[in-house]
Amino acid sequence: MSMLLEVSGVTVTFDGFRAINNLSINFAKTELRAIIGPNGAGKTTFMDIVTGKTKPDEGRVIWGDKNISLLGMSESQIAREGIGRKFQKPTVFEAQTVRQNLAMALKTPRGPFAVLMHKKTKTNAERIEAVAEQIGLTDSLTRVAGELSHGQKQWLEIGMLLAQEPRLMLVDEPAAGMTPEEREKTTDILKEAAKTRAVVVVEHDMEFVRRLDCKVTVLHEGAVLAEGSLDHVTSNQTVIDVYLGRAHA
């Protein structure tokens, strides 16, 4: 099976500090993957590299069937290639309605003139409603996003990701600050999304990761430490050392 995204031998240095150290990691076309690791393991930097925010010092990032390199592409180009990203802090456009937020994310031509001449169509309205349904915000479509609860904002951002119809979704701590019920719903949304695309979830919360019930990659000091099921990695002695501190190492 050819891979959707292949990251190989990537290294990033900030001021002499190696945030990412010869990292190699692959994702299949449809899968749900959780990335865990202690603070400073390089999880966010990894997402920054894939989405084009940070340029690595060396290494390759190869994408899709045509094996194109994502390095040297701008953030917006990468997003148009089909990589969506949800930030740690929910970032939705609070001054605009839920519908406008989703409409902006909807997969339509992105050029200024196409946008300027954009006309509302029935199909688009249906797509927006479908996404709203998926994230449980159907009743809130006309509300201003700033009025939503924290959990609803998280969902809206996930919904915006879905509306983008990406082939790879990078989701940073989707469950942060959610009630248990909200978490459950978030899990369902992500699992559903992973049926047709790759979904990569960066998470701290082991309970949430267990709920996702998927392959787990442990990052440590900018490299992959272990990979496999949650039970498999949590029984790995080095992983335990890393999480419990390396006093005896």
Binding site: T91, F93, E94, Q96, M104, M160, Q164
Partner: peptide, 17 residues
């Protein structure tokens, strides 16, 4: 307005800000 409120988000939505 999205660019005004959060430029990076718009960029990651695929718009060439």
């Amino acid at each position: 307005k999205g660019i005004r409120d959060n430029e990076a988000r718009v960029r990651f939505l695929g718009y060439h800000v």
